[in-house]
Nucleic acid binder design. Structure first.
Length: 220
DNA sequence: ACCCAGGGTCATA
DNA sequence: TATGACCATGGG
């Protein structure tokens, strides 16, 4: 089993996932912060509140009273923490001149700057790089570690950067250009998340049987 | 009542 | 470097 074959198997099983679900790339970034350790259905409610309030905008998020912002994003949980994180991100976003300017910044520089924001860790930064800026960065979450670990494609407990380099290197030879790499990484992460949801409920089953749609307990 | 979700920070050893 | 506490809502 190679990493590319795993992707093909997941794609065959679940089909294209069309990530990231959002109207704009700024909404992707906001969603990336709000979804930290939080069910996406809860994030959707928070995002809907922001749209209703005409607040899906960096300047609004920055200048509205803190309690009002907290009220809008409340369904996403950790609202006190995430209010500050959202503001930290928006402060950087505005100071950096917005999306137009940011589009031309080198990926490594962009990644370093994102990681320097309090409240933006490696997974959130990579979500933003891949799904908002369309950069060839592989996103790693707990699902990725568990799946690759169980299929013995990785140890599972290695440092984030190590695992990312490992995966990107192993997929590098399989693709031709950057655009192809971006769309591969895009689908791959989305499919892993999709598979995790499928796999976890109602209870964990055999990963490989599940992937082949031949899980003996699939009907349970 | 309990468990988890599309993580990250900070204090401590 | 590596644990552990903490953050908080909503659905199964």
């Amino acid at each position: 089993m190679t990493l590319l074959k795993l992707h093909d198997l997941l794609l065959e099983c679940y089909g294209p996932q069309h990530w990231w679900p959002a109207r704009t790339s700024f909404e992707v970034m906001v969603g990336a912060v709000l979804t930290q350790n939080t069910a996406w259905t809860n994030v959707e409610k928070a995002i809907a509140n922001l749209h209703t309030a005409q607040a899906m905008e960096a300047e609004v998020i920055l200048h509205v009273p803190q309690r009002r912002l907290a009220a809008w994003i409340r369904p996403a949980g950790y609202f006190n923490v995430k209010t500050k994180r959202l503001r930290n991100f928006c402060a950087w976003y505005v100071a950096r001149g917005g999306e137009k300017k940011l589009r031309r910044v080198d990926t490594a520089v962009l990644r370093h700057e994102l990681l320097s924001i309090n409240g933006v860790g490696p997974e959130t930064a990579d979500d933003i790089l891949l799904y908002a800026f369309h950069r060839p960065v592989f996103v790693i979450d707990a699902y990725t570690r568990r799946l690759l670990s169980r299929l013995q494609l990785a140890a599972g407990d290695e440092p984030y950067e190590h695992l990312r380099e490992h995966i990107e290197t192993r997929l590098q030879g399989e693709t031709r250009g950057q655009r192809e790499t971006v769309s591969l990484y895009n689908e791959y992460h989305a499919l892993i998340v999709r598979h995790a949801k499928e796999f976890c409920r109602p209870r964990p089953r055999c990963e490989i049987c599940c992937l082949a749609r031949r899980c003996p307990t699939a009907a349970v």
